[in-house]
Design a protein around this nucleic acid. Structure first.
Lengths: 150, 150
DNA sequence: GTTCAATTGATGTATATACATTTATTGTAG
DNA sequence: CTACAATAAATGTATATACATCAATTGAAC
């Protein structure tokens, strides 16, 4: 695909900041499209997948809706409805929190864990295939993104 | 905000590819949130703004729906309905293409051009403010993103 | 010239985002 | 104890995304 200028057929940018913004948005779309393709046969959206991974990261401890929201990539989204969808598929369970009935305890189910596990090889493979960077470049990129956000 | 590990409270990643994907998604969200905040007072969504910039880039030549779609950052989106919204605000006009009645000629209006112009200083300022990178790092990042996509 | 495939855009539907608002529960001030 | 503020989640609404499908027009094969 090559340079961002060719990709979106725009020859010039206002400044380097603007170019980086456009490049990031474009690369984001590039990656999400592949991810979506892998998840679609399992009837999972990228955000549902993200919530499942967050819950797996809890290692058996339940998470409240607010805790999930805090860890989500789209910080403004709506964890409540995503958990609904996952619950309908038996991938998570949701219980009223005993010591505070305003909160809910969300846990990933065995079925959810098995689904994540079954997806993993394909996710690892697609990432390796579509990200054309060496190990050193990957950590350079990670460092730049961290620094970008300050 | 610092490292991605702290930002999303996840201490480990499967591999560097996975870490870069998560970091990119997170940074994307970080940037889009700022952009949205600038555009919102003008009743523009980021994608509507993007379509307007594409049309300005045409420098007076009309663009078909397909041509807009091709240049959009979200390649799978729906240029037709975005153009609808912009037309309702008199920011673009849409005419049947005379030599091929399947196509439509979309043009940015004077009002659209003025809106873009009025937004520019604020966009430039917010980018500079929230992207904590030097000029050399910006072009390094642009190069890595271009290479990532292959 | 008629038929049929291809192209272009519009429309339908399910999902997700970006808020604002509402409901339920808890905590706190008087 | 009661009233009210604060918190947690659910719900409502407009927009956008990710397709699939449809309708109109054009082009090409016969």
């Amino acid at each position: 695909m090559g340079k961002i200028e060719e990709a979106i057929k725009q020859s010039e940018f206002k400044d380097s900041y603007n170019k980086v913004v456009v490049n990031l948005l474009y690369t984001h779309s590039y990656l999400v499209n592949f991810q979506t393709a892998v998840l679609k046969p399992m009837d999972l959206s990228p955000e549902q997948y993200n919530v499942l991974r967050i819950l797996r990261g809890q290692q058996g401890k339940p998470a409240t809706i607010a805790a999930i929201q805090e860890r989500m990539l789209n910080t403004m989204s709506n964890a409540s409805r995503l958990v609904d969808k996952l619950k309908a598929k038996d991938l998570v369970k949701r219980d009223e929190c005993p010591e505070n009935r305003r909160k809910v305890d969300v846990l990933i189910t065995e079925k959810g864990l098995r689904l994540l596990e079954s997806l993993e090889p394909e996710i690892v493979a697609i990432n390796k295939k579509v990200i054309h960077l060496e190990e050193a470049e990957l950590s350079l990129l990670n460092g730049l993104l961290d620094k970008l956000r300050g």
